[in-house]
Design a protein around this nucleic acid. Structure first.
Lengths: 240, 240
DNA sequence: TTTGTCGTTATTGGATCCAAAGTTAAGTTC
DNA sequence: GAACTTAACTTTGGATCCAATAACGACAAA
């Protein structure tokens, strides 16, 4: 291979390599348990080994990769228990953030921001059903709500801790929803989530720190496990 | 510089670079807030830039370093709030581990292991005062107790989460104790910690999961803040 | 004196090279 | 035919090289 191509910055930066690798892994290429070789990834992504090695360190720290003995890495396997634990971890950490926030009191800015999230959620769900794009829209609102709480606690330590635990494969639940039945079901799920947001917001405003923690913890934990719940219709019996 | 020395494996591996850097930072060389340059560290440690760059990624992920703008890293500054938050994070995570462990029940092996920690602690404190080496010995016992609980939960996710948050500068409290007064004080602190261990152990054995969580959370949190407490003498008034 | 522009320097990111250690496989001996 | 030895291959870790860019400073113009 000629050396002329050496400095081409067309290739993605290191952060992109991390993102690409994360995606490749979550997509099932590089399946869990398999060894993963620097050179292979490098060729696959069209970069040299160096950025891949850097990415490996990051992903190891994140927990997505783990050392295979003394030599190389392999993709980490996650059991069902692992996923539940990860949910609980997120639950307690976001609960902690909520408690601190309730204790220190909401600033004007944060309160407005959260109120906007609540209002946006209400609007989205007001019409009683979901269109396809609404799911994405909700994701944004939800993300904003959580991020705002987590990053308003006066210390980034908690936010970092949550960020470092956000790698687990439970974000992949964003499957594409087509049929009306699934959209109906999704509507009720989001309705529940919205109500939880509102209770959390209320507790935050009132400075009810213990309640805020408890509610947030449960909300963060249950979010991905809604499917296991018994499911009623919030708008009366429209599903017969 | 000649190229002959290139492959000398005498130099420490990457993991050692991470450890060395962590130490250098916690010792105050590379003070918080300062920019930290790859080349400088590399020369300081007598290695090339490559392992330093890898270490930087690891330490960034750990939170000890953070990107300075778009270019380079700087040593992260920790406020008092940050440290308190980190303690709380550890508290909720270890509390979570304790709850899960209580729920799933102790295996014979784990129970024996924990009982040994309790017994070792009792022995160490039985004579009513501390010798200098006893502090180190307690650290080992304490570490074993916590590690056992955290790593016995059936999933390494929680253990990882805790490990990833173990970087903050509150481990540096292991200052050298010389005078008798400080040893006395330390004794009472360890006495309190030992009692907390025993309550946690009791809750774990009895399967009292909520209690186990609460106790462990408080224990992990208060550990480093004992100095702020009012302090009585557990053995009667020997300090007058 | 201040500000804007241009050139230099410092430092990072990516690519490649070399050595060491592990891994596989072939070949030889009992 | 099984087991041990050894040689070739694979893959990783560290060092060095090159390109690009941000930081810095000098110089000129307003």
């Amino acid at each position: 291979m000629s050396r002329i191509t050496q400095g081409k910055r067309v290739s993605k930066g290191n952060t992109s390599v991390v993102a690409s690798l994360r995606k490749l892994i979550s997509e099932g290429r590089y399946p869990p348990g398999d060894r993963i070789a620097e050179l292979h990834v490098a060729e696959h992504l069209g970069v040299s080994r160096t950025p891949v090695r850097l990415a490996f360190r990051t992903l190891e720290q994140e927990g997505l990769l783990q050392r295979a003995g003394k030599r190389g890495y392999r993709v980490r396997e996650f059991t069902e228990t692992d996923v539940l634990c990860a949910l609980e971890v997120r639950g307690v950490l976001e609960g902690l953030a909520a408690r601190r926030l309730a204790e220190q009191g909401l600033t004007e800015e944060v309160e407005v921001h959260l109120a906007q999230c609540i209002e946006d959620g209400r609007e989205l769900l007001a019409k009683g059903y979901l269109d396809k794009d609404d799911v994405t829209r909700w994701s944004e609102i939800n993300e904003t709500f959580h991020t705002t709480i987590v990053e308003s606690t006066g210390s980034l330590v908690i936010a970092d801790a949550i960020g470092r635990n956000n790698h687990l494969p439970f974000a992949s639940a964003d499957s594409i929803i087509i049929d009306t039945d699934a959209l109906d079901r999704e509507y009720r799920k989001l309705y529940f989530a919205q109500m939880q947001h509102q209770t959390v917001f209320q507790a935050l405003r009132l400075g009810e720190s213990a309640r805020a923690e408890m509610l947030m913890r449960e909300h963060a934990y249950i979010g991905m496990r809604y499917g296991e719940l018994l499911d009623l219709d919030p708008n009366g019996a429209s599903t017969g």
